[in-house]
């Protein structure tokens, strides 16, 4: 049986592994955690999740493809509750970019998860210049919010991890914007 001190030490190591960005993609793969923490890494992560809860953070497991094995999943730490608009802007996002991301994710989700890039650009062009739409979409694809397969655009792994898509669609349909942000 592991001592409390040992579990704390492993949880600390897990948090460092997840938070420290070593590649372009944030987070860490399950197999990397297994290698560092041992085969019971999922229970260590549950313990860490409980600890992070009091700081408004949570551990999430995201599958990037069709796999269902936790070793292949990506583990990330996200903010637990919604953030404020001012916080998003101070994190380096422009309102226009957030609007493009919101419109893209909502539109793609309403179309069963994939649309042709031509259709998406055509929709966004109604509000933004084409060069800005294309540049922002490229950035969103690079950072994992959207995925591109030839001329089809899909919702990326990062959007699945960070965005409550059903809530986004519900808010857009209800047009109930009171008390948001």
């Amino acid at each position: 049986m592991k001592s409390r001190k040992d579990i704390d030490e492993r949880a600390r190591r897990a948090l460092q592994l997840i938070l420290l960005q070593r590649h372009r993609k944030p987070g860490v793969k399950g197999w990397e955690l297994r290698r560092s923490l041992g085969k019971n890494y999922l229970s260590i992560l549950e313990y860490l999740n409980d600890k992070l809860d009091s700081y408004g953070l949570c551990v999430k497991m995201v599958y990037e493809g069709e796999e269902t094995n936790p070793d292949q999943a990506r583990f990330i730490v996200t903010v637990k509750d919604d953030i404020k608009m001012s916080e998003a802007i101070s994190a380096g996002w422009r309102i226009d970019e957030l609007a493009i991301l919101a419109a893209s994710v909502a539109y793609i989700a309403s179309r069963q998860g994939s649309v042709s890039s031509r259709e998406l650009i055509h929709l966004l062009e109604a509000k933004f210049p084409r060069w800005f739409v294309e540049a922002t979409l490229r950035r969103l694809i690079r950072s994992g919010y959207l995925e591109q397969d030839r001329d089809t655009i899909m919702i990326g792994w990062r959007s699945k991890a960070e965005i409550d898509i059903s809530k986004l669609l519900e808010l857009l349909v209800r047009m109930d914007f009171e008390g948001i942000g």
């Binding site: 953030i83 109604a126 808010l171 857009l172």
Partner: peptide, 23 residues
Amino acid sequence: RIKSISNKVLARIFVSCWTPIAS
């Protein structure tokens, strides 16, 4: 809806459904 609401409102809606990754 996307076409009819302003970019600011769209961004505000988005932020209310968004829990960004901490790294």
